[in-house]
């Protein structure tokens, strides 16, 4: 596709800090290359703002390869924008039309408190992981051969698919209830499917769900929006699996 240039208007949420009141601010941009990524477009905006002596727009980003989960942004009413299976860094300006107004907001959820402009604190995800999203076996120096433990191919594949979750928080941002169940279920599933994760499976699901509730995420109502907006295509199968694991665990736990 040949490179084109488009004129757009950005409507961006600006907020000085957590305590200040924020507002939407308009930024017209001329001749934006359709080959540029969304974050590159924001880089250009910030360069302009800095040159004019204004405060640049704060937004999260890191790898810019779609694998770190750091970039967020709610673009035109969708987490990571209108494209499917991509993070914001992998979203390109060719998805937008000449003359279009693009609304950019931070991921909104009480469990993701806003720090500044478009930057939110997604530490609640880390605290959920800390409650059991790991395997507490010693892997240093005495690891056994991976093939010594036979695992059905379908289980290995499903566990791997669940493990591709990058914890970006798009599921929470897009859910009408700000529910974190897709994220938590992916983290529960990636271990529940494998024999190494079975040892602590009961406590894991109970502890992680409990922490999720403590953080103030909403309840799942199975709208399926999370699965559609997830940049990694994490399936609702994982939520069903977590529900089963939770039901089983809450019955057998002492």
């Amino acid at each position: 596709m040949a490179e084109k240039f488009i004129d757009i208007t950005l409507k961006i949420w600006r907020q000085k800090d957590a305590k200040s009141a924020g507002k939407m601010v308009d930024y017209p941009m001329k001749k934006v290359s359709t080959d540029s990524s969304f974050l590159e477009m924001l880089d250009l905006l910030n360069e302009d703002l800095v040159n004019k002596g204004e405060e640049p727009v704060a937004f999260d980003h890191d790898c810019r390869e779609g694998i770190c989960g750091m970039c967020s942004l709610f673009i035109n009413g969708e987490a990571h924008g209108p494209d499917r299976g991509v993070t914001t860094c992998q979203l390109h300006m060719r998805m937008f039309k000449n003359g279009e107004t693009i609304t950019i907001e931070p991921f909104r959820a009480n469990a993701f408190p806003l720090i500044k402009d478009l930057v939110t604190d997604r530490g609640s995800f880390d605290r959920i992981i800390q409650k059991g999203g790991f395997v507490s076996v010693n892997t240093s120096g005495n690891t056994q051969d991976a093939n010594a433990l036979p695992i059905p191919k379908v289980d290995a594949d499903n566990a791997f698919d669940a493990a591709t979750c990058i914890g970006c928080g798009a599921c929470v941002a897009t859910c009408k209830n700000a529910s974190a169940m897709l994220f938590v279920s992916a983290k529960v599933s990636q271990l529940a499917l494998l024999p190494q994760g079975k040892v602590e499976a009961t406590e894991r699901v109970l502890n992680m769900v409990h922490q999720m509730d403590m953080e103030g995420f909403g309840n799942c109502t199975n709208t399926g929006a999370c699965e559609v907006e997830c940049p990694k295509g994490i399936s609702l199968d994982n939520i069903a699996r977590m529900n089963r694991e939770y039901l089983k665990a809450s019955i057998i736990a002492e």
């Binding site: 035109n76 009413g77 009480n110 009408k176 700000a178 103030g216 909403g218 109502t221 929006a225």
Partner: peptide
């Protein structure tokens, strides 16, 4: 009630129809 409480600040623009059915929402 709990679900509404989980997001105090609403989005200025939210395109729910892009990812879920009217009935589910």
């Amino acid at each position: 009630f709990q679900n509404t409480k989980a997001r105090n600040k609403k989005y200025a623009k939210n395109n729910g129809a892009a990812n879920s059915s009217w009935m589910s929402r």
